[in-house]
């Protein structure tokens, strides 16, 4: 009974129309879509943020070299670190490990900066400012495109750069590994 039904069902299924004309002409909408220039997701602000992240990376490396060779005791400064609150959309979250490491490094920063020369401190402050500008700019674009994965990755990279810079200043890299949980 079942096999007979299946046979009849298969025969009937093969008779169902496979070519069906749409009730309206779908071409005009398609023509509009394929002839319009595609909107680039690489907006000027997006590009600016990306350039900032790259700049931060290069600048951090220079700072590292500078800090590494600097051991002069100097007067303390009061760095004004303003950390951006941000949302990473649905794809990323800042892990608790990242937050802990960041808080710890921030607490150490004052002490560590006192050991550096004014030139090195200025260099570090400029780099931190660059990173915070990048984070701020990316956040502005992220508000408009909260699900943009590339932007989220750029923001994460900026935070990683900040973490790397802080850890280099404190000479704490031995206690840190690259965070994969953020």
């Amino acid at each position: 009974m079942t096999e007979e039904f299946d046979d009849k069902l298969d025969r009937a299924a093969r008779q169902l129309a496979t070519e069906i004309a749409p009730e309206r002409d779908l071409w005009p909408d398609i023509a509009t879509a394929i002839t319009q220039p595609r909107r680039s997701r690489w907006t000027p602000m997006f590009a600016q943020a990306a350039a900032l992240v790259l700049l931060v990376g290069a600048s951090s490396a220079i700072t590292y070299v500078s800090v590494k060779n600097d051991s002069q005791p100097v007067v303390s400064i009061e760095p004004e670190l303003v950390f951006e609150q941000t949302s990473f959309g649905a794809n990323y979250n800042l892990g608790p490990g990242f937050q802990d490491a960041r808080n710890s490094l921030r607490a150490e920063l004052d002490v560590e900066l006192m050991r550096l020369s004014p030139e090195a401190r200025t260099n570090i402050q400029e780099n931190l400012d660059l990173i915070h500008t990048a984070i701020s700019d990316i956040n502005v674009v992220l508000e408009k495109e909260p699900e943009n994965v590339l932007l989220q990755q750029m923001l994460l990279r900026a935070y990683r750069e900040e973490l790397t810079l802080l850890s280099r200043v404190g000479g704490l890299t031995r206690n840190l590994t690259m965070r994969n949980d953020i």
Partner: peptide, 14 residues
Amino acid sequence: YRLHVDKIYGLCLR
């Protein structure tokens, strides 16, 4: 498009 639209629409409709 005009050559294949009935096939594609039929598949999508099914």
